[in-house]
Design a protein around this nucleic acid. Structure first.
Lengths: 240, 240
DNA sequence: TCGCCTCTTTGATCCAGATCAAACTGGCGT
DNA sequence: ACGCCAGTTTGATCTGGATCAAAGAGGCGA
């Protein structure tokens, strides 16, 4: 319980945490960071672990430290749609309201920094900047959700898969975006089934599209391993 | 310019305005309401009018007083997806950030209460409750967007159209939701083309599904006019 | 090392919804 | 009243992706 010793007032737990920069903790003063850190615990979840069941009440919120979390919706007959993916340092959990019938599940091993709802609620009341951060994240997620609505509703299977690869590539290595298109390799954080559930496609169609992208030289695929060989053409295929 | 005379301190402009209850203005004190009302103007837009072009900067925000506004995304080749519908008394415009390449267009005649960005920005700084309202609306829109992702990605054409009818029916007459299922009639605020763009279907498929729902006795359709005859079966068809 | 189990790929066939093509309807301007 | 035009309906046909089926490909516990 001594994680609040100083590195110029910042808890050890937090010194190298991304949430302090791009995440919601960036809105907190060192003293508040200490308060939050004191109430926080680090968890590691294995792939497939369910964080929040459909419509369950939640008493813990968390920041993602690493890994990928999928947000899902299901129909009674088992059809499923992934309605969002969250990466570090996203904030998990929905302030001021019951969960909205969304399932939250670790897509890969995930490590979390979690804290009781009460603590965050209190900090929010005391820190306008924190609410601002939450609003910004909500707006960003809204943009993303709408972007995916377009992808799911109007793009072809090939365009969908290209768009998905772009999403992952950019989240794994944000520098990939530049003009030089240096190409990069990474492991897909999702199974073919998950990718299908994200894009509104079947496993088989996803697999076939990967094969085609590989054959056409845009990427190289081997199971989960993907190397982007031609970022430009891939982005092109994905559509604007 | 005398709209700020009192009805117990509330501007005339606002006395019967829904935004004062369910909208963002509910977070304002009478004195702030006066400030905002003084800077506000009422507009009426005809069907099809574009409020904000794709990625244009915006200097005005607004509350919807009546009518339906559609949010769209387009691909360079003309494919379009409606990524959201807004009804009174929703707040229009994106605080703290450039518009996100979304088109905003009046789907029906729309009346707006609009005010300069500057005024709202100032009120937000002064009123924590206002930012809270914005966050709540963003979270609600996020839920809706995710709900539609599921619909667009995983439901059949019949389920999609039923879901859409339910959305409209509930927004036109919120009491419809009850158990008694009293059935109600309304005019669709969208053309078949718009409905298709919302659901990820073609005009023809939308039309055929309407015909089928009519033939099966769930609704009665005549052009834009729809009467829901069996709310229960319709909700059932729409899926959970 | 083997056998099992999950994930993935590939092939053959099918079908929901797209596309192509007309005809129908209702409003609105002249 | 008429003609035009945007929106809608209906029919015939086509096809992208689903479904059905089966064979790889790792990984991992015994």
């Amino acid at each position: 319980m001594r994680q609040d010793i100083h590195t110029s007032g910042i808890p050890v737990l937090c010194v190298s945490c991304e949430a302090r920069h791009r995440g919601i903790c960036g809105a907190l003063e060192p003293i508040q960071l200490v308060e939050l850190a004191r109430a926080s615990t680090k968890h590691v979840l294995e792939e497939g672990a369910e964080l929040i069941g459909d419509a369950e009440p939640i008493d813990n919120y968390a920041n993602i430290l690493s890994g990928v979390v999928k947000l899902t919706k299901s129909l009674p007959d088992g059809r499923q749609q992934i309605v969002g993916l969250q990466f570090a340092p996203d904030f998990l959990g929905r302030p001021f309201s019951e969960e909205s019938a969304i399932g939250v599940e670790a897509a890969t091993p995930v490590s979390l920094c979690s804290f009781p709802r009460r603590t965050i609620q209190r900090l929010i009341e005391a820190t306008p900047g924190l609410e601002r951060r939450l609003l910004m994240q909500a707006l960003r997620e809204l943009d993303e959700a709408r972007g995916w609505m377009m992808t799911v509703g109007r793009k072809t299977a090939a365009e969908k898969v290209a768009s998905f690869l772009l999403l992952i590539a950019r989240n794994i290595d944000p520098t990939l975006d530049g003009e030089g298109a240096p190409a990069g390799a990474f492991d897909l954080p999702l199974t073919r089934a998950d990718i299908g559930d994200f894009l509104g496609l079947t496993i088989e169609t996803v697999s076939r599209q990967f094969t085609r992208l590989d054959r056409d030289g845009l990427i190289s695929v081997k199971g989960r391993r993907v190397e982007v060989l031609d970022m430009g053409r891939l982005a092109d295929l994905a559509g604007a």
